[in-house]
Design a protein around this nucleic acid. Structure first.
Lengths: 160, 160
DNA sequence: TATTGTTATACTCTATAACTATA
DNA sequence: TATAGTTATAGAGTATAACAATA
């Protein structure tokens, strides 16, 4: 409540910060705290959680991916994937069929509805993000994405 | 387990990603997921959680701050602050005394031990972060901090 | 009547262990 | 023997509601 409604009404509560704000981890967390509720609100409007949307999006981009691969990509536990996949399938957003050559695995594919929902929701999420990050000019935004991707992947190249 | 030990041993599982990776929120979350476990590991060595360290650090920088102000600064609930403050006090890292002019409030101050622990732990956390973000050159690192701070504060200025 | 600190509790997200069926 | 999917459960972290003391 305080975060969603009052963040621009509360007294800004200005304080000293000589250490915490110089740590990348803290800054990443804070930035995520500002953006995440906006994305979550948009996704909730489509009965999606952040993690369900992430799954749907990766499945849409990788037809035939199996659950353990998906879990590895999203760095989450296979066990926590089960209910999410179940719901996406029940809603007709994805399909799954046994892999003939290895009957332990299920090949996941997004349906047409799933792909369309993914695309339309992604656009709404992007707009919601822009309401927060719109303060960044395009160069800063592109640079930020590139740097964050590098932190994630651990690639040792340099930008520009 | 998979995230801590196997992330550099597992097959990288290369997949397509046309949408998810272009969203700032997702990129922030991913970057935080790489750095946070490292910070957490260091803090655990001092019997601190991320949130306890955050409290200690803000208190150290703002002697006399009260709990509701601290909660507002860290964007967390007052109620969740109680056990954290209790423990910090029991460990002799902070002290609290009633504010004479408003006996509902407790003024929080870091002890010498608390300030010293804050400083030494901060240095270890920074080193742990560097093990992940060391891939960034100093310019990229400074730019990242500045952009993230702007996302957090909502300041409409431009860098450089 | 409103606010501070507090307690108790619920809810979400993630992690762990164990099972089955297949390999 | 190992792996994919599954189930159940435990543990964090966070949010909500209500209370006593004080303003």
């Amino acid at each position: 409540m305080a975060q969603l409604d009052d963040q621009f009404q509360d007294d800004p509560v200005q304080v000293e910060d000589t250490v915490l704000g110089t740590l990348i981890g803290y800054r990443l967390k804070r930035a995520y705290m500002q953006i995440q509720p906006q994305a979550q609100r948009v996704l909730a409007g489509e009965n999606l959680r952040v993690v369900s949307f992430s799954c749907l999006s990766i499945i849409a981009d990788n037809p035939g991916i199996v659950q353990s691969e998906l879990a590895a990509v999203l760095q989450m536990e296979r066990s926590n994937l089960v209910v999410i996949i179940d719901e996406l399938e029940q809603r007709g957003l994805i399909g799954r069929e046994r892999v003939p050559t290895d009957r332990r695995r299920y090949a996941l594919t997004a349906t047409l509805r799933g792909r369309r929902l993914r695309d339309s929701v992604a656009e709404k999420v992007r707009q919601a993000e822009d309401a927060v990050i719109g303060r960044l000019n395009p160069q800063d935004r592109a640079h930020l994405l590139a740097v964050l991707e590098r932190l994630d992947a651990g690639a040792p190249q340099t930008t520009t």
